[in-house]
Amino acid sequence: MRNLLNFIIRYSTGFVFALFVLLSCIMLAGRDAYHTSVILTSANSVSGGLYETSSNITGYFNLRNINERLQKSNAQLENENLNLRNEIASLKAALSDTADVNVPKRFDYILASVINNSSDRPRNYFTINRGRLDGIMPGMGVVDQSGIVGIVNVAGPHTARIISVINETQKFSAKLKDTPFVGTLTWKGRDPSIAYLEDVPRHATFHIGDTVVTSGYSTAFPAGLSVGTIVGRIRASDDNFYVLKVNLASDFKALSTVRIIKDIYKNELDSLVQYDIKAE
């Protein structure tokens, strides 16, 4: 026993070093796990509070640009709204006896501010100033005024951490607008404005400049939200699929206000999936 103790004391530096290396490696190994402890992320109360304070000061810097983009998207939406109203009016005139079809509301939005953001790493995350107490749950989709930006990963009581679209470990389902062709949106490399739409079937037709939108195959995003525009095609290793280069709609270097999408049907859909698994 004494020899053992002597041994440990004599080589204590080695043991301490090995312990810390081991702890670090455990953290490294668990970093891509979907369920991470809140304390180990920027969504914990100390760092959340610090980032909130700092963003209260720096949040004003980009307002002019953001306002301009909001005005643009507002104008576009107003136009769209007007067209749809006209269309509905003409359809109603044609089919006067059709009962009012009220589609129940499925998605709800929660507004939040981005209080910490990274865009120059392979695994990018950002932190928002809303958390569990505001109704944020892991798995919810996040959009800003231009398009989708990420998925909620960890929700603390007052803050939450979002996996950014520009994170190499996260994939999103997306499709070419007005077509049935679905692909997987992945991001790699260093450019925060370029992502890749993989697994697009070879028979898909598209043009440079076409819009890529969400597919609606998950409960995170409703179908048809803007993702970006096609800027080119790159050679894929598999001959049956295209890989398209997509210019992302959102500016990930200057995220400010985002909306978190709450799917009211989520529990119902999840229980259906559960039921399916049980039935098998």
Binding site: F17, F20, L23, S24, M27, L28, T41, S47, R121
Partner: peptide
């Protein structure tokens, strides 16, 4: 020195969402 260095890296890791990278 090892303890203080690990603590430094760990705190930076938590704040910047890079678990383990700076600690190691």
């Amino acid at each position: 020195l090892l303890l203080l260095s690990f603590a430094t890296g760990f705190i930076v890791d938590v704040f910047s969402d890079t678990p383990g990278v700076n600690s190691l």
